[in-house]
């Protein structure tokens, strides 16, 4: 299954070299996808406060989010909190 991944918000450029699509096995969980994503990011992990959004559903933060089983065509968005000014 191919899951499109968007990393948005603060320091989004650090994820620029990541593939836009991550392949996972059928029936994989959101946490398995997140682990795969973190593995690819290596020594620059995503902040714990980043929002986890699966196909438009807000599931919580990286450190505390609802679990979900991935479906084909799902899209994962990680939003690293931004402020402004």
């Amino acid at each position: 299954m191919e899951i499109r991944v968007n990393i948005c918000g603060r320091h989004y450029h650090r994820a620029e070299k990541l593939p836009r699509v991550i392949t996972v096995a059928e029936g994989s969980s959101l946490d398995q996808l997140l682990q795969k994503l973190q593995d690819q990011l290596g020594d620059s992990p995503l902040p714990k406060t980043a929002l986890v959004i699966l196909s438009g559903r807000h599931l919580g933060t990286l450190v505390a989010h609802r679990s979900a089983e991935l479906r084909p065509d799902d899209e994962l968005t990680i939003l690293i909190p931004m402020a402004g000014g």
Partner: peptide
């Protein structure tokens, strides 16, 4: 609303 103008992508999220 998340506006990713860098890549030309927008998302709308239902907040819980």
């Amino acid at each position: 609303w998340i506006v990713d103008a860098y890549r030309g992508h927008t998302s709308i999220v239902e907040l819980v």
